[in-house]
Amino acid sequence: MKITVNGSSHEIDAPDDMPLLWAIRDRLKLTGTKYGCGVAQCGACTVMVDGQPKRSCVTPLKFAAGHDITTIEGMDGAEFEAIQTAWRAIDVPQCGFCQSGQVMTATALLKEKPAPSDTDIDNALAGNICRCATYVRIRQAVRDAADTLEA
């Protein structure tokens, strides 16, 4: 299977039903994308596929091939930078394990809705579990990032 990740093309010798998550982590050694549940419940494995957030743990390679995949290591752009800055300013992470996924989803939200309401934030991020429950700060950081983009 040939997949394009962060702008580079990679030949992956694997069955076509292998989830993208394991190709990214075990084969390409891009480990910012995490395994948390394997069944699209927690969002820790979120990557961008053609600019849309996808749970890589339930995305078979056959549906990833031919698409433009971006992991957190390959993210850039105004929304991503605003999210990174906002996250750091108020020390959002605790254990940090879910945060790649949170950041990916938050960035996807801001790309589509630069000025999200609190409900928009909840709707986008309800699929990303944080067992440390850093949700108060995630919500605040998304608001802060949106304010930065607006300014």
């Binding site: 994308t33 957190i72 990174q84 996250w87 750091r88 992470p93 940090g96 945060q99 950041v103």
Partner: peptide, 9 residues
């Protein structure tokens, strides 16, 4: 540990 827990590193 905030920075590296924000960008996946």
């Amino acid at each position: 540990d905030t920075n590296i827990k924000t960008n996946g590193e």
